[in-house]
Design a protein around this nucleic acid. Sequence first.
RNA 1: GUCCCCAUCGUCUAGCCGGCCUAGGACACCGCCCUUUCACGGCGGCAACGCGGGUUCGAAUCCCGCUGGGGACGCCA
Length: 518
Amino acid sequence: MRSLRSLRSFLSPHPQLYTVQMSIRVRFAPSPTGHLHVGNVRTALYNWLFARQKSGAFILRIEDTDLDRSEKRYEEQLMDDLKWLGLSWDEGVDIGGGCGPYRQTDRFDLYTRYADRLLKAGKAYYCFCSVEELEREREAQLKAGSQPHYQGKCRAIAPEEAGRRRDQGEEATLRLKIRDGIVGFRDLVFGPLEVDCDVIGDFILLRSDGSAQYNFACVVDDACMQITHVIRGEGHISNTYRQILLYEALDLSLPQFAHLSTILGKDGAKLSKRHGATSIDEFRRRGYLPEALINYLTLLGWAPERDGREILTPEELVEEFSLERVNRSPAIFDPDKLNWVNRSHLKKADPTRIVRLALPHLEEAGLVPKEADSETSRWAADCIGFLINHVDKLEDLPAEFSRTFSFDPEAGLAAPEVQEVVSQTGAREVIAAFADYLNERDFVDFDVYREAVNAVKAQTGQKGKNLFHPIRVSVTAQASGPELEKLIPLLERGSRLPLPKKVMSARDRARQVKGMLA
RNA sequence: GUCCCCAUCGUCUAGCCGGCCUAGGACACCGCCCUUUCACGGCGGCAACGCGGGUUCGAAUCCCGCUGGGGACGCCA
C-alpha cells in the first residue's frame, strides 16, 4: 500500500488526485506549553476541515517532549478549547485509538528503537560536543557569513570508540548523518520547495538525556500513525527538509505536506498578546460564538470558490474547503471583521441558545439576579433578544443593557445632542403631553404606547423626527437608542420586577424629564 | 549574517495555465433610502495590482532584479 502510494506520488505532479480513495489521516500536534492561540487554532481547524471533508481521521497528538515547559493543565485546556470550537477528533490521548499512545512522553521507547535502527545502519552517530563548543562553532560561522549548522565533527569518531566513551559515562547526543544534494518536496499550498542539504547540518535525534528531539519524534509518530497529510504552520517548512531526510534514512514513505502562512497582528508583526485577545479561551469568555470564530479563521487565508458568501456554518465550510485555495501570503488578524462575522452568527443563532449564553454576562455584571423567578427570567430573555442586534459580542451586552435600562436625566439632558432635540420647535410640548398621557395609565404596554404617540401627535401637531426625538428623550434622556415600541413595554415590566438595579417605568421617566424641563 | 518564503484597496480576498479587468466581493469608513424616531436592512461612494526591467500584438497574470515583509538557522516545538 505504502510503496504504491509513493510510486504514484513520484509519477504524478498532483499526487493528491490519486490518493482520494485512500483513507486520509491528519493530525494536530500542539505542545502543551501555553494557551491555545488563534494561529494554532487555525492550523487545527484546517486539519479538521480537510479530514471531515474527505471523511478521514483527525488525530490529536500531544507533543510534550519539552519536559520543562509542558504542563498537564495546558493539555486539558487545549482539549477543552478544541471541544468548545467543535473540532472533534477521532483519536487522541483522551479517547485512544489504534495508533496510540498519543502523548509523546508515552512513546519514548519507540523513539529509542528507531534510533537504534539508524545507529546500527550507520546513519546516525554519537556526538560528544559540549554546548559551549557548539555555541562557539555557531558564532564563528555567523561571523563568517554562512548559515550556522553543525559541521559533523563527531562523524569521525569510530562507532566502537563512541560506544566505549558512552559506557564510561560520557554524555552524548545522537545525530543524523545528512546526505549531500538537494532535498525537496511539493507543498500542497506553496508548491515545489527545495534546499541544499549543506545548509542543514547533522541534527540531533536524541538529546544527551536520551529523549527524542522534535523532528525525530514527529517523523516516527507521523509514520507510525500513518498520517497521510501533514498540515501545519509555515514555520515548519525548514523542519520539513530535515524530516524528509529522516523518512529517507528510515526508509519510510512520505506524507503530503501543506504549510499554512502565519497570522499577523495589525502592525504586521506576528500576532501576540499585545494585539488584544489571542487565546481562544479569551474569545470564548468575551462572548464570541464558536461557529463565528471557525468562520472567521477559515476566511483568514482562504476564500470560497464562489465569492460573495462569507457567512458560513461549519458544515458549509467543511463542504467548500479546499487546501488548493489556501493563500500563501501571511494574513493580518482583523478584529473588526471578526466582530462582523460574530454579529452575523449571533443573529442567525437559535434565540434560546443566545439567552443561555448571554444570561451569565448580565448576571456577572449584577444586572439580573442569578436565581431569578420565572417572570424576571422571561423579562431578561426578552431583553437579550431585544438588545442582541446591537452588540458584536456577548461581553458588550451588560454595557448595552445598562445604557438602555438605567436612567440619568441629569447627565442625559446636558448632552449637546439631547439639548438639540429639546430645543426643536414643539419638543417641550411633546414631552409634556407624552408624560401627561402616560400618567393617566396604569400599565404601559405596546398598545398604550401607540395610543400615546397618536394622542400626542394629534394634540401637538408634531410628527416624524419632531415627534419621536422628543419622546425618546422623555423616556431615555438620550438622543438615540433601540426601538421605542419595544423598549417601553420592557421598561414597564422591568419596573415591577425585583431587579438588583431598579428599572424606572416610562411613566416615571417621562414625568421626571417633564419636570426638569419645566 | 546566511538560507527559504511571500507581495492586488487600510484589512480579508477574487482574479494569477496572459486578452472577458475602465481589477470583482467582504469588513471598516462616508453618504443616501427604508423605518411616522433609532437600529436592522437596501443602495451608492472612497480605496489596490510595491518599484524597475524584460518576454509578448497584449501582463495584475510569465521571467529577472530591487525594495518591503515574514520565517528558519537550538540538546524549543
